[in-house]
Computed example of a mutant assay.
Amino acid sequence: MHRRTLIAGALLALAATVPAQARDNWPERPIRFIVPAAAGGTNDVLGRYIQEPLQKLLGQPVVMEYKPGAGGAIASQYVAQQPADGYTFLLHGSGLVTVPLVQSKPSYSAIKDFEPVSLLGSSPMVLMAHPSTAETLTQFVQQARAKPGSLEWGASALGGVGQLAMVAFHDAAGIRDMVMVPYPGAGPAAQALLSGQTKYMLSTPSSVTAGFVKEGRMRILGVSTAQRSPLLPDVPSISEAVPGYHTETWFGLVARTGTPPQVVSKLADAVAKVLAQPDIQQKFQAIYVVPKSGTQALGDIIRSDNALWEKVVKANHITMD
């Protein structure tokens, strides 16, 4: 009996070491990055920039998969339900935090269901305006205050950071009763602005919008960061006309809660090495994203964003249901 007990104990101990060995040898098969939008968005572009160099460092393919819809909730809920084995990650941004805050029955929790792997970068938001509106940020704020309800503004996703950041801007600037028009993405929202269907919106800058500005089809009145952005040094900060206003978007990789810490650390280290490469930094900056890495840095942003946007949502009774 004693011999049988020893054998059984040895077998159990051996079985317990297998997961640890698997974690030490990670990755042993392709890794998936789930993108919460259609191909072509900023998340996707950033993922493709780091895809090849990550593959070289990790020795396994990095596969991009797209699960658009519901402001990113479909992709987020999908990853939250996958095995916590370190082979499925979510390449998301600020919407990871904002969307569940505006759902009456949240499909996931950004804090409870996910753990940070690495920040990828941050980007200022810009206040874009149709040429028929005021020429400067100060004039725009003054005219909007004077005429409540007179302008329409576009939101690229219900519950997205663009919507919540605009509501926060209105509150800080004393702008009242403007008409929100939601669109299924930044592209359609920008087209509505160009056609004059809406008069302003907050979104991340891009080479496309820079082209529209150069053509005189839209104006960029201000950036959302507390100080002027090095990416757009000639554009005033919104806080210059609306003191205290500050927000920015971020992009990063998260994993399902319970993912082995060795895996998180190894992937985070690989991402940091990739983001340190000069050519990668140039590619990020060309699409108005400041490259940044770090597991703790991403965790801090997620928690601070959750506290900030929860207050905005509750104070303004915002819901997407």
Rank of each mutant, 00 (worst) to 15 (best):
M218A: 07
F251Q: 12
F251P: 10
V208Y: 09
G211K: 00
Y245E: 00
V242Y: 00
R217M: 06
P260E: 03
L221E: 04
L253Q: 03
P261Q: 14
I220K: 05
K292F: 03
Q262I: 10
V208H: 05
Q285D: 01
T249P: 08
S229K: 06
W250Q: 13
A268M: 08
A210P: 05
K199C: 02
E215T: 10
V254I: 12
Y288F: 15
L253D: 09
S207V: 14
S265G: 08
V264N: 08
T247R: 00
A226K: 14
A255H: 01
V235I: 14
K273F: 08
S224K: 02
T204K: 03
T204S: 09
L221A: 06
A270F: 02
K283T: 07
K292Q: 11
V208R: 08
T257L: 02
P205D: 11
W250D: 08
R217C: 00
G244W: 05
E240Y: 12
P236N: 03
L231P: 08
A241V: 09
V274S: 10
I287K: 07
L221D: 01
L231W: 07
Q285V: 00
L267M: 13
R256I: 07
D269V: 15
F284D: 06
R228P: 01
G211Q: 01
K273D: 09
S206K: 09
T249C: 13
L221F: 03
L231K: 11
S207W: 04
F212S: 01
M201H: 00
S239W: 05
A255C: 11
V213T: 12
V242S: 03
G211Y: 00
K266E: 13
K266I: 13
I220R: 03
P236D: 01
V271N: 06
G294A: 04
K273H: 08
L202K: 00
Q285T: 14
A276Q: 14
A272L: 08
Y200D: 02
V235R: 06
A276D: 15
Q262R: 15
E215N: 12
V223I: 11
Q281G: 14
T295M: 04
L202C: 04
Q227I: 02
V289P: 11
G211M: 01
I280K: 10
G222S: 11
Q277P: 09
V242I: 14
T295G: 07
Q262D: 15
I287Y: 07
Q227H: 11
